Structures are given as structure tokens and as C-alpha cells.
Simulated assay, not measured.
Amino acid sequence: MKTISIYEAPVVISGLLSKYQKGHLWKAPEEIFGKVSEWVDIMRVRSTGGRVRFRTDTKKLWIRTTLKACTPDVNFPIVGSAACDVLRGRGMEADYVGFVVPPEFGKVVGEREISLPGTMEDIAIYMPRNEEVEDIEIAIDDDAEILPPTPYTFEDPILYYGSSVTEGCTATHPSCNFVAYTARWVDANFVNFGFSGSAMGEPSMAEIIAKQKLSAFVMDYDHNAETADHLRKTHENFFKIIRAAQPDLPIIMLTKANDYWHEYELLERRDIIRQTYENAVAAGDQNVYFVDNSDVFGAVGRFACTIDMLHPNDIGYRLMSERLYPVLKEALETRYGKKITI
């Protein structure tokens, strides 16, 4: 087999805003350090949302992943927290073909050889949710070809900002949270700005997001707003900072799903977010959208949609994805005049 560098063409790394290199595969740009909060500084170096992409006709794909650490998380199996997922194909038709993960917590190297059909296809390796990645090594058959990945329909990324739920906490794989699902279904590049417990709607974070070249922005930090009053004081201001910088950017506002722990103020929070949306529409904004998740898990049996009555499991993430997808599709097609057919 022949070794292929992930840092050189024709391979493309997507979803990371850092100046990435071996040992430095960060989801957030370097400029964020010291600008928002101590917890954001800690989590900015995670590789969440990063993807290694290419096309190949190899019949065997060898992958070795090396993490900076591999630590237990009470909410996760090791595949959910530390694995790289491998998908072939594009859009809704992308197939899951395997994962690469260390054999146990405490070990940092995972290695696997994956069998493929040998036809020229797009491959995407999704980086882990929890861990910082040191390196990813790949090799293909000696007689196989490797080409650049098929461009996304929307190359400028959708940026999703929010909590551990946005980050993909408790999904069993890094490719099956609502961020990965919905971006894949509209064939868009994406950046996952989920910051577990630390998405507080700070103006400094809005200013960093406002500088990025994006196709759309999904605003989803309701879970981390400490109280409804905190959300009321920050939400519209956060939106206005980004809107002032990017007047035509599609912006989708989400409310939190109907978890048990904050049920007493769930509808109050929903109405605060809806008010930001309604104020924008009243001001003439034609690129703003609202998604109400307050009942997305239903009234009966909703405990089956989460792992801890807060963080979604795969059922919960799928339900969230199915609610967001048509709105995201409409927003992109309306703004850019492209029909999503994949």
C-alpha cells in the first residue's frame, strides 16, 4: 500500500478554522484564544466537525488515528467520544463504512483497514467529538488513484454555534449528530462551534463568527444560557452583531429540545428566541428563520430520545435533524438559487 498525506493535495481537510497541521487540528481559529472564556479556550482545540476528504478507487483503505488523549466520559461509549467515522458517497446517500478508534480508554492510537468496492467514490473521515487529534494517517492500494473530493454544493461552511448538544454529545458516532446530518443532507461544508457548557452568547464570540465567510449560521445556544433572563439579555444582541456584519447571511434560530431539567422555563425561552426572530422579520429581514424544538421529542416516551434526560441519543438527534433540515434547505435554496438534489 502507498501512504497518502492528509495535509497535501489532493486530500482536503474541511471543518477546521485553525491553521491546521499535524498536532494542531483545531476547530476554532487561533484568534479566539483569550477572547471569550477560559472554557472556550480549553475546548477550542478539539477537532469536532473536522473531516478528511478525497476520492479514491482503492479496495482497501488503511487508517491510523493518533489522539492527544483518550479519556472516559460518563455520557459516552468510546466510539462516540474518540472514534473517527468513515463515510463514502455524498448527501443523504452517503454510506457508513466503518470507524477507527483506540482499543480502550487510556490508549491513543487506533488502526483499521476498511474494505471498499474499488469504484471511484468520495470518502469523508469525520474526526472525534471529544478528543483533540494529533494525526491521521491513510494508505491506499498501490494501483489505486486518489483525487480531490467532489466540491460541496455549498463550499462556504454552515457554522453551528451552541452547547454540548450542538457539539454532538452522546451521539454514538461523530457523523450522526444533528450538525453532521443536516449539513450532509444539504451537501454543505460545515463548522461545529459547539462548546460544551460554554456557549453563553458572548459578544466576543459573535464578533469572531461574524468575520467568517459562511453559507449560513445556525444559532443554538439556548441550552447553555444559564437562565431565561440570561437568554433575554444576550440573544438578540448576539444576532444583531452577526447580522450587521453579514446582512444577507441566512440565520436560523433554534430553541432547545424538551428536556426535563429546564422544563419549567422551556416555553419562556422559546418565546424569547421567537421574539428575536419576529423583530428581525418586522425590520425587513428576509434571511432569518425560526425552528421550535420545544416539542421535538414528543409528549410520550421522550426519555427514549436522550441518554440522561438532557443530551440526545441517536433517536433524539435524528428527530432534531428532521425538524431542522427542511428549514435549512429552504434557507439555502432561497438565498443562493441552487436546488439541492443529492
Rank of each mutant, 00 (worst) to 15 (best):
P29W: 00
T170E: 01
Y277A: 06
I251Y: 03
M1H: 15
F238Y: 12
T234K: 14
G110I: 01
M43H: 12
A83P: 07
V40G: 06
T306N: 05
T227G: 02
F193R: 09
D271H: 06
D143A: 14
E113R: 08
P117H: 09
C84V: 07
S18L: 04
T48Y: 04
T170P: 00
V79K: 14
E30H: 04
V179C: 03
K339P: 05
L319G: 03
M120L: 15
T56H: 01
E134D: 14
K211W: 02
E265W: 09
A257R: 06
F239S: 05
Y264R: 15
V45N: 13
E278V: 08
P117M: 09
T306R: 09
A199R: 04
L214M: 11
L116F: 06
H24R: 12
Y152L: 11
P103E: 08
N279T: 09
K19P: 05
Q21S: 15
Y325L: 14
F76H: 05
I273C: 12
N130Y: 14
I6L: 08
S14W: 00
L319M: 14
A210P: 01
S18H: 05
F297P: 04
T3S: 13
D187S: 08
G50K: 01
M200D: 11
G316W: 02
Y260H: 13
G15Q: 03
M120A: 10
Q275M: 14
R302Q: 05
Y277L: 09
R269D: 01
T65I: 15
M120P: 01
E134G: 05
S215Y: 01
G15K: 02
D229M: 13
S196E: 04
P148A: 09
K27T: 11
V300H: 10
R184A: 12
G316K: 00
T341S: 11
L249P: 02
F178D: 09
M43W: 10
T276G: 10
R53L: 11
G110K: 05
G284D: 05
E263V: 15
K233R: 15
G168D: 04
G197N: 08
P103S: 08
F290Y: 11
Y161N: 10
E132A: 08
S18V: 03
S18M: 07
R323W: 01
D314K: 02
I307C: 10
R51Y: 03
E145A: 14
P151F: 03
E330Y: 09
N293F: 12
I209K: 02
G91C: 04
L254R: 03
A282C: 05
I158D: 00
K2F: 05
T56F: 04
L310M: 12
D57R: 06
K19L: 12
V186N: 02
R112K: 14
Y152I: 12
A206C: 10
P203A: 13
V12Y: 01
D248F: 12
R269Y: 00
T65F: 02
M92R: 15
E111A: 08
T3P: 01
V291I: 08
Q286S: 15
D314F: 01
P203T: 06
R88F: 08
L61Q: 06
P102D: 01
A283Q: 09
T234N: 13
C70E: 00
F33S: 12
H24P: 13
A216P: 03
Y160T: 03
N293W: 07
A210M: 08
E121N: 12
E202A: 15
R55Q: 13
R64A: 07
Y7L: 13
